[in-house]
Simulated scan of single mutants.
Amino acid sequence: MKYRYLGNSGLKVSEICFGNWLTHGSQVENETALKCIRAALDAGITSFDTADVYANTAAEKVLGDGLKGERRESLEIFTKVYWPTGPKGPNDVGLSRKHIMESINGSLKRLRTDYVDLYQAHRYDVETPLEETMQAFADVVRQGKALYIGVSEWDANQIREAHGMAKELGFQLVSNQPQYSMLWRVIEEWVVPTSTELGLSQVCWSPVAQGVLTGKYLPGQPVPKNSRATDTKGGATMIQRFMDDTVLERVQALRPIADELDLTMAQLAVAWVLQNPNVACAIIGASRPRQVNENVAASGVVLTPAVMSRIDDALGDVVVRNPMLTAENSPKGRPS
């Protein structure tokens, strides 16, 4: 396992991060989830990503149970706040001071820890003054409940404004957590340059495009049983944008490249994300321990410029690059 600095901080994270979105507490039985966490630890993964909203807080509890007994100082635990949780009352959502303070306490209890290494704003809250949000995060840091603060799916302008406020309040934003893969590159034009300038890293989710880049979805063929595309708890909705025969045909063109490099298609996809110098880590999920072991092998893989060019040629115009989509996909109001 290789390790990288998170932004302009002294914190190192494993460049493969284990995440439990759409799996633990919902899609995967707890016993299997715990085996996946064990496999991640055995493979040298030290960074673990979750959120209070995943399975309506159940995913945090599963992760806390899975990490019980591990040396806390040897782990980097990330979680997030924004989306509705609990009974989903009017204050159980957003980035108000009230919700942030109550959410961090709940997350710490479920994760069985006194602090998280990285606490992230899961989306931008248009209904709370940014000053209020950043002051609350500053207080969370000063209370020792979070060591570092990050954001997720914020656009370049939001990151710049928040970075300036954080600096005035005596702490630094160190990361942004965006969707990023061979097929979804919307952060490259604006978010990545801004983050590089300001000292933030990307903590990337869905490096295999919800499983599409593994090559298991074939054009013109039924989707595999028990795959992400059949998950009625959210997975099928997220993957739908890529379930187009033209996209799937282009993805199959990556197979010869992976074969020549003696990589699986999943390993090629994760390794591709890690070629971006602004990326600190790629978040992998797993419903079976062997998936963890497969993806971990992408750590340290170097893809030559010629290989990167071949990947671009293979995918062609199915790659989504529109930088406006970060802002367009951002919530226009608090979800209920």
Rank of each mutant, 00 (worst) to 15 (best):
L248Y: 08
E197M: 08
Q27D: 10
P87D: 13
V192I: 11
A266D: 04
P222W: 06
G69R: 07
G69T: 05
S330M: 06
V203A: 05
G7I: 07
G144K: 11
N293I: 13
I104D: 09
P224S: 01
G19L: 12
V296E: 01
T304G: 14
V151D: 01
V81D: 08
E188Q: 00
V247W: 09
L248M: 02
T32P: 03
V81Y: 10
L173P: 09
T237E: 12
E31M: 04
I283R: 00
A253E: 07
A121G: 04
I187S: 09
A306K: 14
L274N: 07
L111F: 03
S330C: 09
N91C: 12
A55D: 02
E161Q: 10
W21R: 07
L303H: 08
I104W: 12
T57W: 14
P335E: 06
T50A: 14
P289C: 06
V318S: 06
E29Q: 15
P335F: 11
Y217P: 01
T237A: 14
R255N: 09
D259W: 03
V28R: 02
E102H: 13
M308K: 15
E197N: 04
G170T: 00
E131Q: 06
P87E: 15
L111Q: 00
V62D: 07
L268Q: 02
E76N: 12
D65H: 13
W154Q: 01
V208Q: 07
C281N: 02
S47Y: 11
L147M: 14
T214I: 05
C204P: 02
E132T: 10
P224W: 02
R321S: 10
H24S: 11
G89C: 10
N322P: 01
S47P: 06
G69Y: 11
P289R: 05
R250D: 00
F48A: 05
N276E: 01
A209I: 04
V307H: 14
G69V: 08
D114S: 10
E189A: 10
K88Y: 13
E31S: 15
W184A: 03
